[in-house]
């Protein structure tokens, strides 16, 4: 009934659209797992997108662009970490400040870069496998960063749930005072997680300008940072579930176009709503079932002050 060609191109597009979301979501999962809520994704992503583009244009090397996009994201995350961890300030406020800061600075600095053509990450067709009918298009015709995102998700799952580092991160986010009494330096763990998270969010942004849209324009993240915050909840703070979530959210976005292009009338208003409805359903589910597998880290967003109960 469903044309396999249609399905293949839908799935391939879902992966394309989902990859920037996946990087940013993985980053925020690590950050939030340590107990730090960073609402500034939109600002960090756009900063990564701009920095990546500018560096790629200046050096001719898109990979260097991606790296610098990550570093720029990390620097913004450092601001957040300083306020929320060192100064114990309200995390929501500094996060929101990052959104305005990122959008403002990139809008200002990025003016002269609009309309420029930089160097981009192009899809690499894996020999033989990419020639497979349909499957080749879906799975083996992407740029290297798209493949790496999946490997990264698996790696982060391993780190979080199978290693001591992961245990420390989770402990810092669930019961910081217990972690502290076990000798974990909560502030250091939170700093590290926030910086690493910011790095990945920045890379997600750089992917957007260097591999997905292949251009730079002001405000080009267009709300993807907020989508990723919903995706973190959807994933239940699990890296492996983020893969599914990111591709699903990316795919829903594309599905409306694909259906319209074949002449099927769908309301894009409704389609754009679906990711958020799904997120609300997952949230409801987690509240009703009270399952840890769906719940937020217990100390999320709460600054940790030694010897003080909230």
């Amino acid at each position: 009934m469903v044309d396999p060609g249609f399905l293949a191109s839908l799935l391939a597009s879902s992966i394309r659209a989902g990859t920037p979301l996946l990087y940013a979501t993985l980053g925020e999962i690590i950050t939030e797992r340590s107990g730090v809520l960073n609402l500034g994704l939109e600002g960090i992503m756009i900063t990564g997108a701009f920095t990546g583009f500018a560096v790629s244009l200046a050096t001719g090397n898109p990979w260097l662009g991606v790296l610098c996009g990550g570093i720029a994201g990390m620097l913004l995350a450092l601001v957040h970490a300083f306020f929320s961890i060192t100064l114990k300030a309200n995390q929501s406020i500094t996060g929101l400040m990052l959104v305005l800061l990122g959008l403002g600075i990139t809008g200002f600095l990025g003016r002269n870069y609009i309309g420029e053509v930089a160097f981009y990450l192009d899809p690499v067709k894996i020999p033989v496998l990419s020639d497979l009918p349909y499957i080749g298009e879906v799975l083996f015709s992407h740029d290297p960063m798209a493949y790496f995102a999946v490997i990264l998700a698996a790696f982060l799952w391993f780190i979080l749930f199978k290693t001591r580092y992961g245990l420390e991160i989770i402990a810092a986010g669930e019961k910081p005072e217990a972690a502290d009494s076990m000798g974990v330096n909560v502030d250091r763990v939170r700093y590290f997680s926030t910086l690493f998270g910011g790095f990945l969010v920045g890379i997600g942004g750089a992917y957007l300008s260097l591999a997905y849209a292949k251009l730079w324009t002001e405000g080009m993240t267009a709300g993807r940072g907020w989508i990723c915050l919903a995706l973190v909840i959807f994933s239940g703070w699990m890296p492996q579930r983020a893969i599914l979530g990111a591709y699903l959210f990316g795919g829903l976005d594309v599905l409306s176009f694909k259906l319209q292009a074949t002449g099927v009338g769908v309301s894009y208003h409704l389609m754009k709503m679906v990711p958020y409805v799904v997120t609300i359903v997952v949230l409801l589910f987690s509240v009703i079932r009270k399952r840890a597998a769906f719940g937020a880290p217990a100390a999320l967003g709460i600054p940790y002050v030694r010897g003080k109960k909230e």
Binding site: S9, A213, K214, M220, A222, V254, F257, A261, T262, Y268
Partner: peptide, 26 residues
């Protein structure tokens, strides 16, 4: 063949919409 994006200015979305049309033979 018309595809509505619901956006005035979202390069990534609009590109994806155009690709969908090209995939369908436009």
């Amino acid at each position: 063949y018309v595809v509505w994006t619901g956006t005035w200015y979202d390069p990534a979305e609009e590109k994806e919409a155009a690709l969908s049309l090209i995939d369908e033979g436009c």
